[in-house]
Amino acid sequence: MENITVVGGGLAGLVAAITCAEAGAPVHLHEAHHSLGGRARSSASPYITNEGPHVLYSDGPWWRWLAEHGLLGACAAVPLGGLAGFRFRQHGRLRRTPPAALLPVLRRRRRQAPVDVDFHTWIRDQHGPAAATAASNLVGVATFDADPGRLSAAFVWPRLLRVTAIPPAARYAIGGWSGLVDRLATRASSLGVRISTDARVTSLPTSPVIVATSLEAAGRLLGGELPPVASGRAVLLDLAVRTVPGDAFVVSDLDEAGWLERYTLPDPGLAPQGESLIQAQMPLRPGESKADGLARLETLADLALPGWRDRLTWRRDAVAHNRTGALDLPGQTWRDRPAIDRGDDVYLAGDQVAAPGLLSEVSFHSAVTAARLATGLPATEAAR
C-alpha cells in the first residue's frame, strides 16, 4: 500500500492511524503540539482534569471498538451513591427529582423526531412549554449550546435519550483521558505507525492523506475555507475543594443548560486525598463575555457546593469555542456537514464532519471511514 499521512494526533488522528496500519498501510502521523491527544489531553497531577466534562458511553460503537482492541483501560460506572447525588436546578433552586413536566417526555422513548423542526417546538407541541424548556436545557451537557431547543429535533432527541439512559451508560476513564490517549498511541506504535510530535504541517502532504484537525486548520491545508458548521461556545470551570458531606455529584441546570459534576466520586485519584475535583460548564449566550458566563456558572456552583469559596484549593477556567463538536440546525443532518472524502485521496476526520454519533463518537466514525477509504477498503457502516 501507499504511505498514508495523518495530520493531527487527537482521538480522530490516532484512530485513523491505527485503522490504516491494521489494513497493512505504512502510516506517518504528524502532531503540531508537543504531546498527543488534542482536546482529550488531561492536566498533570495532582489535579487531573479534562478539557470540559468527558465521559465514554458504553452503549455506543466507540466503546465497543476500544473494548475489542483492548484499549479501554480501567473505567468506572456512575457509583451507586452518585445516583442519590443527582440534582436539578429549576427556577433558581436545586431539587432531587426531575420536574413532573419532564417525565412524560422521557417515557416516550421510541418516537422518531423530525429533522426540519426545532426540538423546543417539537416537544412543546406534544407536552407544553414547561416540558420543552426543561428537556432542551437538560441536553446542554451534550451540546454546549445556550439554546439547545433551537437545534433540530432529530439531532437533540437521540442525545437526550443517551444521556438519560437508565442504568446510566456514562463511563469514566480512570486517571483521566490522557491514559486513553497513551493506550491509543502505544497501539499505533506497535503497528509500526511513525509518530512525530512538535511537527506542524503547513502545506498539504502528498496523498493519500487524512486531515484530522479543526475545520479551520483543515481549510488552510486544503487551500480554501470549508463550509461553516455550528458548534458550541461555553465557559469551563474546574474546581478543587476540601470535601464535605452534602456536595452534589451532578447538577443538571434546567434553567440555563449548564452542568456541574464531581469527578472524584467515581475516580478519587483525580485530586489529593480529602479534596473533591469538580468540572462544570455553562454555555455562553450570543455576545456574552467570559466574565458574565463565569458569574452564572459560579452561581450554579454556589447551589451545588455550599461554601466552596472558603474550601477552594485550586481552580482554572477557560472558554471552549468551536471545540465542542457539530450542532445540526433544523433541516440539517450529519450528512450535511463537510464530507469526509474531499477527492484526490484527501480525507477529513474529526468531530465536525459528516459522520454520526455523540460527541467523540463522531471523531471515531469519521476516522474509521477515512482510513478505510484511504486504504482502498469499502466505506461500509461496519463501525456503527
Rank of each mutant, 00 (worst) to 15 (best):
T375G: 06
R200P: 12
L300T: 05
Y263L: 15
D302A: 04
P53Y: 10
V244P: 09
A354V: 12
T197G: 09
S214D: 09
T213V: 02
V319D: 01
A165Q: 01
G9N: 03
E68Q: 12
A74N: 14
V163C: 08
E288V: 09
G376K: 07
S289G: 13
A12H: 07
E381L: 11
G274W: 08
R109H: 15
P168K: 04
L236T: 14
W157G: 04
L373W: 06
Q90P: 08
D341V: 07
A240C: 11
R96I: 07
A84S: 14
L94P: 04
A248N: 09
L277V: 03
V15D: 01
Q90G: 13
R200T: 13
R107A: 14
G224M: 04
L377A: 15
T164H: 14
A374D: 00
A370P: 02
Q126M: 13
S366M: 11
H54N: 02
F144Y: 14
D253K: 05
A44I: 14
R187P: 07
R309N: 10
P330T: 07
V7C: 08
Q273Y: 11
A131N: 00
P79I: 08
G307P: 02
L265D: 12
T313M: 11
L260V: 15
T369P: 05
L83Y: 11
L294S: 10
E31C: 04
A199P: 13
G8T: 01
A383V: 08
A234V: 10
L94A: 04
E256R: 13
V78Q: 08
Q90E: 15
A320L: 12
G179M: 07
L254Y: 03
G9F: 00
L226N: 01
G70D: 02
G179V: 07
H28W: 02
D145E: 12
A257C: 02
P104G: 05
F155D: 09
G179I: 11
G52D: 00
G128S: 09
T213F: 06
R311W: 05
A130I: 06
V244Y: 10
A280T: 12
L329G: 08
E361A: 06
P79K: 14
G331K: 13
F86G: 05
A379L: 05
G24D: 12
T133E: 10
T121Y: 04
S45T: 13
V209R: 00
L297Y: 00
A44M: 11
A354T: 09
S42Y: 00
D147W: 05
A40M: 15
L221Q: 04
P266D: 00
